[in-house]
């Protein structure tokens, strides 16, 4: 009897879990759609920006370099990590942290900046310098999130406190596949075009390049923020779908067990009554 009651309770619990995870899945689906659009739409812009910078550089004197492109002698690197604020998104965070640990074991001279709560503690445990940590938020990242990050980058890179800047983030390949990736951000490497056609610059290339590179830096960071966000939503959607399926499966199994138990109880009762009756009749 007690067994049946506890089974009933477990069925209800599994049902509630399924309801919750299904709701989370639905939310992730709607957020994913927005995120995916923004991510995919942003890619041509960044690509074009890079090709324009390439064009400007190719037609300039090879001696000219911008501060963002200069290599300095500092071997220290600044690594910026983008991760979600919230868990429940499958293996995404685990994979990301594995990538960070892997990187950290190979590159000792590193300072960190994190965006997103989930990797903050993992990075703090590395006993390396963590210069700043921002929240990622649970909505589509806005462009103003980039500004404080760029400010810090400027301070450290242009102040020659670090020699290069990298991003570790999750790349959005498609809904079912997201991969942690290390991206070199600074110094900006722009491959020169072989055949630079004659191009008119208004104002001169020296004046055009700085705002162009600055914008490129901002947009690159923003693009990776978007990729990271889209990855999070995609991973969460898939994880929650699996969780819902599992919960429903458990409910089915428990229901079967419960019905069997109920049937058994009824059979036993009938047997009881029957045997009592026959004892009475034959006495």
């Amino acid at each position: 009897m007690a067994n049946l009651l506890s089974l009933k309770r477990r069925i209800r619990t599994a049902g509630n879990v399924a309801k919750t995870t299904h709701a989370m899945q639905t939310i992730a689906v709607s957020k994913l759609k927005k995120a995916q659009n923004a991510t995919v739409a942003g890619r041509p812009y960044v690509e074009k920006l890079l090709s324009v910078s390439q064009n400007v550089l190719s037609s300039m004197d090879s001696k000219y370099t911008h501060e963002y492109m200069k290599k300095n002698n500092n071997n220290k690197s600044l690594v910026i990590i983008f991760s979600p604020d919230k868990g429940l998104c499958g293996g995404l965070i685990t994979n990301l942290i594995r990538e960070i640990l892997n990187y950290d074991s190979q590159n000792k001279d590193t300072i960190y900046l994190t965006v997103g709560k989930k990797t903050e503690t993992a990075v703090a445990n590395l006993s390396k310098e963590l210069i700043a940590s921002f929240k990622f938020g649970t909505i589509l990242p806005t462009f103003d999130m980039v500004l404080p990050i760029v400010k810090i980058i400027d301070e450290y890179f242009l102040g020659q406190k670090v020699g290069n800047v990298k991003i570790i983030s999750t790349n959005f390949i498609n809904v079912f596949s997201q991969k942690p990736k290390i991206i070199n951000v600074l110094p900006i490497e722009v491959p020169k075009l072989e055949s630079a056609s004659f191009t008119l610059f208004e104002p001169g290339p020296e004046k055009l390049l700085p705002p162009l590179l600055r914008h490129l830096l901002e947009m690159t960071i923003y693009q990776h923020l978007l990729e990271s966000y889209a990855s999070e939503q995609g991973a969460r959607m898939v994880a929650m779908q699996k969780a819902t399926d599992n919960a429903l499966e458990i409910t089915e199994d428990l229901k079967l067990e419960y019905n069997k138990g109920r049937q058994e109880k009824i059979t036993n009762e009938i047997l009881d009554i029957g045997s009592a009756y026959f004892t009475y009749v034959y006495e």
Partner: peptide
């Protein structure tokens, strides 16, 4: 509108890059 004033671009314009 560009930093150097308004410009009109017609076909066969020379290669140009501006803000």
């Amino acid at each position: 509108p560009t930093v150097n004033g308004e410009i009109a671009i017609l076909p066969n314009h020379i290669s140009l890059l501006t803000q």
